[in-house]
């Protein structure tokens, strides 16, 4: 009972933290915007906008929402992967899901010179990138799952995930050898990750696909909890193992795939957030972890983005660099502190 009570307070604090970070994130940037202007801009109609209100409505608000979707989505897909593969090191990045998405995008951006002609102009649109990335991540995840049903050793699965990463990297190098400097630059910029490239129309599509991913994740909560005991126990508890696995994989590839498609390959969030959440809530129960990962992932991503845009300066850093700078030390700290990663 006591645990329940303290969880409620933590959830309340996190929700307030998320709101605060959301507003802070919008107010910071090359132009500082006051709190009252932010509140006003939410309610002003589109034809009578001041400059600052225009910045908020069309630039900073979509970016902050994207940050929330990216942080929470990657965190949740990491959580799902760690439970499904029973491995604390699993995450969209380590298992090669991000690599799969990268491969899809590389084939579209860099491969268009190979396919050539009118196909190139058709392929290069944003939507083709999104579809390619989602498809790439889904295929890699499916491959990892097939391999994992043959190979019992979870360590081997992680190594296989890393190998997929290497294969992707080598295919990308071959493709980049044949592509123009312009295409290469486009691909490299995509690789830096960016939260600010989305207009409202793209954001709405993003939200829709993300919602499907989130929906499937919530459906999996019960199954995930029984998977904590191991596959055979889960089966003996009446779980349809194949179906649950499939739903979890679909959820992860929808989340990680679209996020990578719209915001680029964002590193370490998927791995670090679930561990941070388990530390904070001291539980493995997914009914608590899933909403908690959502909140913490969103908060951390908003903070990373606030740092990346270097307040009061015209420069902004690649978001991927910030998340790695933040995520890698967390993983190291967790390992040093508890000597092993509990999940």
């Amino acid at each position: 009972m006591n645990q329940n009570q303290s969880n409620k307070w933590t959830f309340l604090a996190l929700t307030l933290g998320l709101i605060a970070m959301f507003i802070l994130n919008i107010s910071l940037g090359s132009v500082q915007i006051s709190f009252s202007t932010i509140i006003d801009s939410f309610f002003s109609s589109s034809d009578t906008l001041t400059n600052k209100e225009y910045i908020i409505q069309n630039y900073r608000l979509p970016k902050a929402i994207t940050a929330i979707l990216v942080g929470s989505g990657l965190g949740i897909s990491g959580l799902l992967m760690q439970t499904l593969f029973k491995n604390p090191l699993a995450g969209p990045f380590v298992l090669g899901i991000t690599s799969g998405a990268s491969l899809g995008v590389a084939l579209v951006i860099l491969g268009s010179s190979v396919f050539g002609g009118f196909l190139a102009t058709f392929l290069i649109s944003k939507w083709s990138l999104v579809i390619a990335a989602s498809l790439g991540s889904f295929l890699v995840l499916l491959l990892v799952l097939i391999v994992s049903s043959k190979v019992r050793d979870t360590m081997a699965i992680l190594i296989i995930g890393l190998m997929f990463g290497s294969i992707t990297a080598s295919i990308v190098s071959v493709l980049s050898y044949f592509s123009s400097a312009e295409q290469l630059q486009q691909y490299i910029f995509w690789g830096f990750g960016s939260l600010g490239d989305l207009d409202w129309q793209e954001l709405i599509i993003f939200i829709i696909i993300y919602s499907f991913g989130l929906f499937f994740s919530i459906l999996s909560i019960k199954g995930l909890n029984s998977l904590l005991l191991g596959d055979n126990y889960a089966k003996s508890l009446g779980l349809d193992l194949k179906k649950s696995r499939f739903i979890i994989i679909i959820a992860t590839s929808l989340l990680a795939g679209t996020i990578t498609a719209f915001a680029g390959p964002i590193a370490f969030i998927g791995l670090a957030i679930p561990h941070l959440t388990r530390q904070l809530f001291k539980t493995s129960n997914h009914k608590i972890l899933l909403p908690a990962v959502f909140l913490i992932g969103a908060i951390i991503m908003l903070i990373c983005d606030s740092i990346a845009q270097l307040p009061n300066s015209d420069y902004s850093l690649p978001i991927n660099a910030i998340t790695s700078l933040f995520g890698a030390p967390i993983v190291i700290w967790l390992l040093v502190r508890q000597r092993k990663m509990i999940f």
Binding site: T83, K86, I218, L219, I221, K222, N225, S226, L227, L228, L229, G230, Y233, L237, G238, L239, R278, T283, S284, N285, K287, I342, F343
Partner: peptide, 25 residues
């Protein structure tokens, strides 16, 4: 061995009720 030992004893025992609980457990 069970995969996750981060469960509390109560949580673990309660997982035994899964065949009877609703969709979210």
């Amino acid at each position: 061995p069970i995969s996750s030992k981060n469960l509390s004893v109560f949580e673990l025992v309660a997982l035994g009720r899964q065949p009877y609980t609703n969709w979210i457990g």
